[in-house]
Amino acid sequence: MRWFEIALVALTLFTGAVWLLDKLYLAKRRAARAGLLEPTEPIVVDYAKAFFPVLAVVLCLRSFVAEPFRIPSGSMIPTLLIGDFILVNKFAYGLRLPITNQKFIGTGEPKRGDVVVFRPPQHPDEDWIKRVIGLPGDTIAYRNDTVYVNGEPLQYRMVGRYVGNGQETDESGARLLTEQLPGRPHPVLERDDRPYFVQGEGQWTVPAGNYFVMGDNRDNSEDSRFWGFLPEADLRGKAFLIWMSWDRSAGGVNFDRIGSRIP
C-alpha cells in the first residue's frame, strides 16, 4: 500500500498548492480581468478547492491517528485470520512523517505482547504484522516449542485442536494453546506434522533500539527467528481492532470478528 500513501501525499500537496496559489494570486488576477462580470474559476482550481480539505483530513488521520490494514497471510493465526481488516494506532509509538516513516515526536515505546505493524528490513516496501516478544536488552530463546524470556520459560495451557475455515483450513488439527506472556496472555498455534528445522530454534540478545517479534502461528511465520531484529525506526503502529473480516472461501463476511479487540 506504499503506492497509495505516495499518491495521497502527492495529491494533497498538488491540490493544496493550487488552492494557495489561487487564493494569493490567481483569484485577484481573474477578478481584475473580469471587471464587473462574475469571474469564472478554472476547473482545476474548482476541483482543487473541493478535494484539498478532504485529502488533507484523510492524510492526517491515516498518518497520525489510525490506518487500516488487511491481513494477507496466516502468520498470526489464530489471533488474526487471512482477510481480517484491522485498525492500527499510528500515534502509539510516536508521530511519523508519511512515506519516509521518520519519527518527529515520541509518544511511547512498544510493550511486550503488543501486536505491531512494521516494514521489515528485508522488504522495506511491505507492511508485516507480528507480536513483540523481546524488548531491547532481553535474551530470547526458542526451544522445543517454548519461548524463554531472560532464561524463564513461558507457561502454556492447552485449549484444544484448532479448527480452521476457508483459507485457514490447512491449519486445522494444530495445537491451540494460550501462551502466558507476562501481562499479555494470547493464543498460539503449534504443529506436530511439520519439519523440525523450520521451527527456528536458537537464542538471541536484543540490541538497543530493536525488538524481537514472532508470529502467533509458530510453525508458519517468517519472523525474528529467521531474519533478525526489528529496528524501532521500521515500526508503523500498534494493531488494536478488527473492523472487518472477509474470506470468500469461508462464506464471506465473518460478523463475529467485527469489532473484536486484538489481544
Rank of each mutant, 00 (worst) to 15 (best):
M1H: 10
W3I: 13
W3E: 03
F4G: 07
A7C: 14
L11M: 13
L11W: 01
G16S: 01
L20T: 10
L24R: 13
L26Y: 13
K28R: 12
R30W: 14
A31R: 15
P39Y: 09
T40N: 09
V44M: 10
Y47Q: 11
P53H: 04
V54A: 06
V57D: 06
V58N: 05
L59D: 04
C60R: 00
S63C: 12
F64Q: 04
E67D: 10
I71A: 09
S73C: 03
G74H: 00
S75E: 09
I77A: 15
I77S: 14
P78D: 12
L80S: 03
N89R: 11
F91N: 06
F91S: 11
L95Y: 13
P98D: 08
T100N: 11
E109D: 12
K111G: 02
V117N: 02
P120F: 13
Q122W: 07
H123L: 15
H123R: 14
I129L: 11
K130D: 00
R131D: 01
P136F: 03
P136W: 05
R143T: 08
R143P: 00
V147F: 13
Y148N: 08
V149F: 00
N150S: 10
N165K: 15
E168Q: 12
D170M: 14
S172W: 08
T178E: 15
L181W: 07
L181Y: 05
P182C: 08
G183E: 00
P185K: 06
H186M: 05
H186L: 08
V188P: 01
E190P: 00
R191A: 11
Q203T: 14
M214K: 07
M214R: 06
G215W: 03
F226N: 05
L230M: 13
P231W: 02
D234L: 06
G237A: 04
L241P: 04
M244E: 04
D247F: 08
G252P: 01
R257T: 02
G259P: 09
S260W: 06
S260N: 14
S260K: 15
